[in-house]
Design a protein around this nucleic acid. Structure first.
Length: 298
DNA sequence: CCGACTACCTGCCCGC
DNA sequence: TGCGGGCAGGTAGTCG
């Protein structure tokens, strides 16, 4: 479930275990995820202390004490879970096939936690293997290829209506694809784009340029969209925080957030805009589903 | 430059 | 009960 709010939730969930911990052993259960891991991945992590965790867009960053940062992306199905204490293999379990979940445990960080809290395993699980991990230099992160062209964070102070007006001016691209473009805003995904458009009563099919005046200034609708983006992300992070324990300890593919979507995956249901009376439709844009209400989103 | 389309991979759900 | 098709939160590449 990894869009920005989910990655932020993962970061917060992992921080207590990982911050200050030492990587005692790194287990690669396969040499690649979506891409091959760096050949020296294990060697460069082993023995390092973790200074802290951070996030950029949908990327989780693990900062190490030698100036290296592990850059991790969860793809579509990636999740982390924590197992505390010594491994306790069940007696008689030796010949058991691994559970189907364990089958997709691809990377395991064995850490010694700070302040004598003992050992833990931080386990990266990713059935579809669209995620990846890489190494970068922390003081040069902006130069990291995936970050070079990333747009601003939705919650940062550089995302405002004037900025979006600049990006949207002259663009015939539909709002849906424009907002999914990580170069425009970093961290929005399919769910929250649908939700933000619904909140601001804008159709996903609307051409981006139509939210900009002839003089290049944001129309009111763009102001409202900007506020909706901010609010939907902030709300989701807040909701994630409250379900954090479950999210980290289960595989996280289902969960809390589902209950808070207003249009995403609600094809055929009544629109939740008060007094609207429309129905949620599903269309395909850029090969991906858009959910919206034809009646109140213009 | 743009948009359209494909690829990557596994699991799940639905209809037959 | 099994099988085929479609679908899934992501990014990156190619092609016209």
């Amino acid at each position: 479930m990894p869009e920005l709010p989910e990655v932020e939730t993962v970061k917060r969930g992992l921080s207590p275990t990982m911050e200050g911990a030492v990587m005692q052993r790194v287990e690669l259960r396969r040499p690649d995820l979506r891409f091959p891991l760096p050949r020296d991945f294990v060697a460069r992590l082993t023995g390092r202390q973790i200074i802290g965790l951070a996030r950029r867009a949908k990327y989780l960053l693990i900062d190490l004490d030698d100036g290296t940062t592990v850059v991790a992306h969860l793809g579509m199905s990636g999740s982390f879970r924590i197992e505390e204490g010594e491994r306790s293999d069940q007696p008689g379990d030796f010949h058991h096939a691994r559970s189907k979940d364990e089958k997709h445990d691809h990377v395991i960080f064995h850490v010694e936690q700070s302040q004598g809290r003992g050992v833990a395993r931080v386990i990266y699980n990713d059935p579809r293997r669209f995620g990846f991990m890489d190494l970068a230099l922390r003081n040069d992160l902006d130069a990291y290829p995936a970050f070079r062209e990333l747009g601003p964070e939705p919650l940062g102070n550089t995302l405002d209506a004037a900025y979006l007006a600049g990006r949207f001016a002259g663009k015939q691209q539909p709002l849906k694809t424009a907002l999914l473009d990580q170069k425009v805003i970093a961290g929005l995904g399919n769910i929250y784009v649908c939700e933000a458009l619904w909140r601001s009563h804008l159709s996903p099919k609307r051409a981006a340029a139509t939210l900009v005046t002839a003089t290049g200034r944001p129309k009111k609708e763009l102001q409202s969209l900007t506020e909706a983006i901010h609010a939907v992300i902030a709300d989701a992070i807040e909701a994630g925080g409250s379900s954090l324990r479950d999210h980290i300890q289960t595989d996280g593919t289902l969960g809390y957030f589902q209950h808070s979507f207003c249009v995403y995956d609600r094809e055929g249901e009544a629109c939740r805009t008060p007094g609207c009376g429309g129905r949620v439709e599903r269309i395909v844009q850029g090969g991906r589903s858009s959910f919206y209400c034809h009646h109140c989103q213009k």
